[in-house]
Nucleic acid binder design. Sequence first.
DNA 1: GCAAATTAATGATTTATTCAAG
DNA 2: CTTGAATAAATCATTAATTTGC
Lengths: 179, 179
Amino acid sequence: MEQNMSGFCIRGGSVSANSGSTGTKCGRWNPTTEQVNLLTELFSSGLRTPTTSQIQKISTQLSFYGKIENKNVFYWFQNHKARERQKRRKVSFDDDDKDVNIRPENAMNFSTQNFAYHVSEPERLTQTLQLFPLNSFHGESETLKLGVHGNECRDTTMFSYKMGEQMDHPPLNLRLSFM
Amino acid sequence: MEQNMSGFCIRGGSVSANSGSTGTKCGRWNPTTEQVNLLTELFSSGLRTPTTSQIQKISTQLSFYGKIENKNVFYWFQNHKARERQKRRKVSFDDDDKDVNIRPENAMNFSTQNFAYHVSEPERLTQTLQLFPLNSFHGESETLKLGVHGNECRDTTMFSYKMGEQMDHPPLNLRLSFM
DNA sequence: GCAAATTAATGATTTATTCAAG
DNA sequence: CTTGAATAAATCATTAATTTGC
């Protein structure tokens, strides 16, 4: 059924133009928006690991919107499932931009020094924010009500904002200088 | 609904008070330039979802430059992250092909971001995928070579994808509607 | 120049997900 | 299967920019 991979690359539709690289590479499946929507729907409906016959059916349905193969469906679910999980695992620092690579490794330098600011004026100064207080473990619950204080504006808002596994932030030591 | 803000709230009055003495307007947090600069610095350094203690520290630091609360920091990162992503999403879809090997091991290759357009797009259509045709067993082998066709780019990858334990999906009859 | 009117940004809430525990 | 934790997406709402008539 799939003979001409060539058709794969750029599908019309709403797939934004992948600049340059055009159809020539039989590279990889490039799902159409409709296909993605449908797959996402299925995923949202609870489907995680489709069986073979499910895959076949899905693939058949989706082929209506563009070229697609069984393996594409298979991979899609595998990847989507894995990445959803991954997302939930290391949520905290996710530079979810594909373009910008800001790796934790870049900006960190950790020294245990807390800035106490009972100083006075924020004029010229270079300040160091100590973040990531060494996540080893405080043992403390690390749950903070962000808007709780009744004297605040309105906080009926309570979102206990717990940090569990996103504790994996690398130590971050930013040197912030204001003119 | 009334914003029952606390002391700082001074409704009305001089509205167009521009930068400078940003103090004490009300309604909602209005970050000073310095605060925004710092937050942006942190964001640029890779911080996306600060932990509770990070929020506290940041807030403490920034309070030096003006009124601020933990929740403001929390919100700022949430919004900034979301809006950066939104911005990027318009240009997303880089399918960096080049690598044609589609194997189960390497298959984690299509970017999740491509699924960015969440569902709910204008396209009137209601489709029903019939999965799992109610009759429990076909007796058929249910084993499908997903990537079998050697005429594909090169992936002779075949994973016979047997469904043993994932057979537990209930008959799924999805009504997928996009409108 | 200046405010009223309109628009653009962005702070704050609500809603819908996902995964994981029970 | 149900529920809780924890977002991210979507949305609401208010503030700042700006446009516009005078």
